[in-house]
Nucleic acid binder design. Structure first.
Lengths: 227, 227
DNA sequence: GCAAAAGTGTTGAACGTACACCCATGG
DNA sequence: CCATGGGTGTACGTTCAACACTTTTGC
């Protein structure tokens, strides 16, 4: 038995959130788990993950960021027989409304990462471990790839983008230096010429994602200031 | 069916080499392939990979570098039924004698990477693709982790270490600056106090691997000079 | 005008690169 | 003493971090 599990992250109301589903069957009935599904005979694991992602978020997976995290195969990770090997994936999405009444009746919801840690028994299966690894990967990838734009809507401000880094890394960044790095890096963001009216202060220029995949020079994460 | 395949790299006679086995069965009879083996019911994929690695190299896998590369699951990647999903691993070893007469009678050999590209039909299955991804991973990891010492014997010179970077990256590095970076990075190399007599010139100081896993500051790869 | 948020300029420290130079050994 | 490879010093350019400063809006 081989599955693809998904760590789908987004930023909602200034907090880094994870998409979880409440389990409707044993084992772990009623507990939160990562969404996932079985590999079908006619598809690759990438296709399985993309299919699950679009089912859960309601948008075409081709527009979202999706990447393998790793394989989790401990013989006792799933009490079922035969045991289930899973390939965990990291997905990044902008703030989306969940297709509540769609597909199956499972209750999917966005859970702030901080609340995941306060769950009495944690996530189902070994999903706490998977989440930890996926978060570490996301934090590392933010440094060298332009994936931060995947958290943002099609048009966004530099402050929106900075908030992504700050929420995922859990640090505060210098506004001025961030602005320069981002706008000077080639192919990271492209000015649209439009502006967004703000409740207070000068209107911010709007950008859209560029076509570069890698971020040069990299955006280095500050030293172990906050964990 | 779930397997672990291994991309085992080393440096022999100044060339980056890959451990390949000649297939003794169909499909791909007589072609070169990556070593690998099936996941057993009582082990994790990490244990499968470590077991295969020690069988092929003859040394305890705990002393070598071993890391997941990714899952390869295209339905047509293996003509057998049911299809085989594999989790590719990258392993790094010092120059080792192969246990030629050991274990099973498969003919394992070190093949220079340059020669892999000249094989008429390439490697068996999708192993060309796996090798490409594993090499890219190794090249990237050299920048931020201290894995280069895994290519070296227990005691090595700075020049040995520099050759690792040069052979894996395919570039030439400045001798002086490399020496400084490596010796000043904390926990990368530790001087043993001994020296190695050379055929020519001043004897080089011998070092052993330090205990740091990450390399700070990183050893940045030169711009796209050579591919 | 004032508060607030966006955006620009400046400066000193840290780092990378290039290359000149000295050191230790065998022949 | 010379060739050869190991190792150090130095000078310059680039990048980074900190923070002062200017711009543009709503009220």
């Amino acid at each position: 038995m081989f599955t693809a599990d998904l760590v789908i992250l987004t930023i909602r109301d200034g907090a880094l959130c994870l998409l979880v589903v409440e389990r409707g069957n044993e084992p772990f009935l009623g507990r939160f788990a990562l969404p996932g599904g079985f590999l079908r005979g006619d598809e690759s694991i990438e296709q399985t993950a993309a299919r699950e992602l679009s089912e859960e978020t309601g948008v075409d997976a081709a527009t979202l960021y999706l990447q393998q995290v790793g394989v989790y195969s401990r013989p006792d990770r799933d009490p079922r027989r035969p045991r289930v090997v899973t390939c965990a994936h990291l997905a990044i999405a902008p703030d989306l409304p969940l297709p509540s009444a769609g597909s199956d009746a499972r209750t999917a919801r966005w859970l702030p990462i901080a609340e995941v840690r306060t769950l009495a028994d944690g996530l189902a299966f070994d999903h706490d471990e998977i989440l930890r690894d996926a978060l570490e990967l996301a934090r590392a990838e933010l440094q060298f790839r332009t994936i931060a734009t995947a958290f943002c809507p099609p048009e966004f401000t530099i402050s929106d983008l900075r908030e992504v880094y700050e929420r995922v890394w859990g640090v505060e960044l210098d506004r001025s230096n961030f602005h320069r790095k981002v706008t000077e890096a080639e192919g990271f963001v492209i000015a649209t010429g439009r502006r967004r009216a703000t409740v207070n202060g000068r209107p911010a220029a709007l950008f859209r994602a560029g076509d570069a995949a890698t971020l040069t020079p990299p955006m280095m994460r500050p030293r172990p200031a906050a964990s």
